[in-house]
Amino acid sequence: MTQAAPVTKKKPVSKTTPKPMQNLEITDHQATVGKCFADNAKMTMRNVNVFYDDKQAIHDVSIDIAKNEVIAMIGPSGCGKSTFLRSLNRMNDTVDICRVEGQICMDGEDLYSPKLDVVELRARVGMVFQKPNPFPKSIYENVAYGPKIHGLADTRVDLDEIVENSLRKASLWEEVKERLHQAGTGLSGGQQQRLCIARAIAVSPEVILMDEPCSALDPIATARIEELIEELSQNFTIAIVTHSMQQAARVSHRTAYFHLGRLIEVNPTEQVFTMPEHQLTEAYITGRFG
C-alpha cells in the first residue's frame, strides 16, 4: 500500500444518517457515521492514520473523547482498536516500525509535536493493559512507582497517603492493606489488574486508557473492574477497548465501532446497541462476525 492521503486533506464527516448501504463492503471513502465530535472534548483526533511499515493499520480516523466520559471501542479482532488506543499515549513509539500520521490533541495540545515530552504525556494519559502486568515488586512499590519517578511525594507520609488513596480508589485497599509489602505478583488475576489500575491512578492522570482490561479475568473479577470503571468515571476520562459487547454496553457512555482499521460508527452506547446506524455495526452486534 502506498502513502496515505496527506494529513491536511480535510475529509467531510457526516453527522447525518446516511442511507444504509446494501452490502457490507468498505470503500476507501468510507465515512464515519454517528456523533464523532463532542463539545467538551478532552482529546481530539483528526484524520489519524497508523502504519506498521507499509501496512496501514488505521485509516483516517477522526473522533473526540469528551471530558469524564467512558468511551468504548469495539470491533472484530484485528480491527485496529488497540493500535488506535496505543497511539493516544504514544505507546506505539516503542514499536520501531510504527508510524502515526494525522492530529491527536489533548486540551488543544498536539501530542505528536516534537516539543511535547512523552514522559509528561504518559503521566497525564495512563494506561491499563490486557494482561495484568504488575512489576515484580511489592504491592506498595508497584503503586508508589509512578509517584516516585515523577517526584510527586515529598515525604514518606505523602507517599503512603498516595498509595493508600490509589488503592482505595481501585477498591483494593481493604484486601491488601495487611500485606502491602508482599509481592504484587502473588495476587489473584483480578486483584493484579486492580493493582495495575491503582498504579495508573496514583499519578492522577487525566485520561485512562484501558486495553481489554478484563480479557484475562474471570466473570467475578470482571464485574468488580466494571464497577470500578463506573466509579472512576467521576474523576477520569476513560477510553476502553473491549471485545465484549456486553461490557461496552454496561460501562460506556459512547461506543465507537472499528472495522478493518476504519472507524465506522460512533454513537451513545444505548443507540449503538439498540438501533445502530450502520449496517456493519449492526452485523457485528448481532453476531454475524466477530
Binding site: 499515549n89 505507546m91 516503542t94 514522559v119 509528561e120 504525556l121 504518559r122 503521566a123 497525564r124 495512563g126 494506561m127 493493559f129 494482561k131 502486568n133 504488575p134 512489576f135 515484580p136 515488586k137 512507582y145 509512578g146 519517578i149 515523577h150 495495575c196 498504579r199 495508573a200 499519578v203
Partner: peptide
C-alpha cells in the same frame, strides 16, 4: 523480561532509563 513490564512502566510516564533501572534490572 516480558515486554508487558516495559509497557507497564513506560505507560506510567517513566523514561526508558527509569524503566531499565527500576523495573527491568530488578526483574
Amino acid at each position: 523480561v516480558p515486554q508487558s513490564m516495559r509497557d507497564g512502566s513506560l505507560a506510567m510516564g517513566a523514561t526508558q532509563s527509569e524503566t531499565v533501572r527500576r523495573v527491568i534490572i530488578p526483574a
